[in-house]
Design a protein around this nucleic acid. Structure first.
Lengths: 141, 141, 141, 141
DNA sequence: GTGGTCTAGACCACA
DNA sequence: GTGGTCTAGACCACA
């Protein structure tokens, strides 16, 4: 479910974000072990090599620490790092979207509207009316 | 300037978005020619094949039409298609960011804050300001 | 009207076939002049170079003969050559289609049906019933 | 054997038709892998890029599905799509031939005769047989 | 091993 | 000049 083959992120980076999100969400807590490489590979239906690469990167980010023969554990400040990392990932997506929208000369209010729709889980940006309160964004250049 | 090697999008897709943005922004108008494949390749410092692949995809999207020996031209409804396509691209980024944030159990107000910061052009998500206080966003060009 | 940009034949070869067809059809008769290169280029909206290349090839095929300063004329046996050439062109198309069909293991009767439909001017091969007489072709291998 | 450099179709489109024919013929079955890009490139003596372009188009046509790192597989309804696509390709060839013949004012019975000869595998359209006498065609494998 | 992207550079058809 | 096709060969992500 968390892996999206249509996303352009390499799978190992999607796994990094996935684990990072689980730690930021408090599902994997500091001091606790992550699922084993093999177990996660089976769960996500990917090659163990791919999971391993993700775990290595998480270790580099100080989110986890590997203890040989024991497993991979969330570090003491893993939660804080994960939260910051997740927020940075969110920020990066938003900033990318805004950059694309500004390049297309979309109005700031239009970006706002699209953001609201995305928040509400709309599948596409095609819209006919403001979702939560009336607004005026459709004036063309 | 528009090409970012660190982005995970393949270069030819970045070019697609770039051109799409220029058409949506009214910089390349219906009936007008795009820069030639070779010229754009020189400008973006990429291989002509890469530009051509982007142009072919733009043709499949009905944004442009190729006339052999003459060049590649924005279609009559290229502007409308480009605008819709750009909005969809913006929506997709926002939705991705929201998905990541929700997976990390960030508060909706936190997402809102990050969005505001991104709109204001902040480089990173690390911040000190109020998390979800209402704010005014219509400040960007 | 005779030039089809979607055909895969190069334009100059389409022009060759076009002129060849006009001679075979008796529209351009032996001894009579063809339209001038410039006139035909204007009519077909192509570059004069392209028409010239077609005329050169028609001369090589003995269908026409250029008389300097006077124009390009259908040769005495131009009609016979043109008819044979047109028939060969028809045959080649049919043979190509049959080859494709046999490679796909379509039944001979199915090829026959498709041929009938094409003769009747149907736009596509998708069909529900025999066009002129009942037939049985839809048994799968 | 399937690639004909004299055909005017680009090589990658010939490969598309070739593979499409193999699927329509039941030689590559739904769920089964196609030969790898590199393997087919070696077999057909073309560049892997050219094969890949063909495979990408086959994917767009829903005939195959790519699984990264694993290979390219015939889709579940690949057989049906392939059959329809092959029939459309046959139809297109026949329609082209008929158009050329009609432009040359060949009799309908003459077209019929040429079709019969092509079905029988005659190499050329030059012939002496009856032009439009009924005949039996169900003789080819 | 698999497919995906990209570069460098050739040659063709056409304007 | 324009776009279209193809080759040779590199490097990446993934199994």
């Amino acid at each position: 479910m968390p892996l999206d083959p249509k996303e352009h992120l390499p799978v190992y980076e999607q796994i990094i974000e996935h684990i990072c999100g689980l730690i930021a969400a408090g599902i994997h807590k500091p001091g606790e072990p992550l699922p084993s490489i093999r177990a996660l590979a089976l769960e996500l239906i990917v090659n163990p090599n791919t999971v391993q690469r993700a775990y290595q990167e998480l270790e580099r980010l100080q989110l986890v620490r590997t203890r040989k023969g024991l497993g991979v554990f969330v570090t003491d400040n893993g939660f804080d790092v994960a939260r910051r990392t997740s927020e940075a990932a969110v920020h990066a997506r938003f900033a990318q979207g805004i950059k694309v929208g500004q390049a297309a000369k979309l109005h700031p209010g239009r970006l706002e509207t699209i953001f609201r729709k995305a928040l509400n889980g709309d599948a596409d940006s095609r819209d006919t009316a403001a979702p939560d309160r009336p607004r005026n964004t459709e004036s063309k250049p």
